[in-house]
Write a protein that binds this DNA or RNA. Structure first.
Lengths: 113, 113
DNA sequence: GGATTAGTTCGCAATTTGGCTAAGTATTTT
DNA sequence: AAAATACTTAGCCAAATTGCGAACTAATCC
């Protein structure tokens, strides 16, 4: 598969997990340290760390360590490749309907003769 | 996690695989039998069958068997929950920027006094 | 300087994924 | 009726995923 598909796989995979989606939703409201992200999940820190690195590898969040606190922030542009892909599928689907429409119209016109 | 998140997980998971994405793209152009979907992937039939059942479980395709041929078709509405989720994230993000904007504006106005 | 806090790394265990071959079943075709 | 077609099922395998506890590092607090 093409190289640009690789990040689509990473992106979609990252969102395939409810914990990661809820972390992202939290981060959409603003940056937060790791512990604060971990708290509502009910999961242990190492587990949350792993989820965060999945999100970071996908380019959906950026993190920075200041002292002993790592602050995580959402990268909002990261969502656009998925949105674009979804739009493309819909476009293909719609152009298919258009062609069907055109075909039906042709048939109807011929019938009128 | 909430029940309605379950299908989001299934949907995003289904799209996390390049083979499944290319199958969906093919189906966006119109229905096709299993073998025709398998051919461009270079994968064996049982493997493709599995991909198809992942897509079907996620509600992204519908299949019907006629004689010995199973025809697969895309379910275009299936993409909307993902699109909606992505839109919601953006909305949260944007309302955050709005609040920051408003804050900055307030500060600036006070400075002018 | 000792204790606490906030991550981080390591490695284990259960499950799921994504591929395969081999061996079915059910329909056409010849 | 036999052969070919189009799946379908079963089971195997290696790698990845998602959780954990234990042990470690690096700040910051008392």
């Amino acid at each position: 598969m093409a190289k640009h598909d690789v990040d689509l796989s990473l992106l979609f995979h990252a969102l395939a997990d409810p914990t990661r989606r809820s972390i992202l939703t939290r981060l959409a409201r603003g940056p937060a340290p790791v512990s604060e992200l971990a708290e509502p999940t009910g999961l242990r820190l190492p587990t949350v760390m792993r989820h965060l690195s999945v999100l970071e590898d996908a380019g959906m969040i950026a993190t920075e360590k200041d002292g002993r606190v790592r602050t995580c922030a959402m990268v909002p542009e990261a969502l656009t490749p998925m949105r674009t892909w979804l739009d493309e599928q819909r476009a293909i689907w719609e152009s298919r309907l258009d062609r069907l429409d055109a075909y039906v119209k042709t048939v109807m016109e011929n019938r009128e003769k």
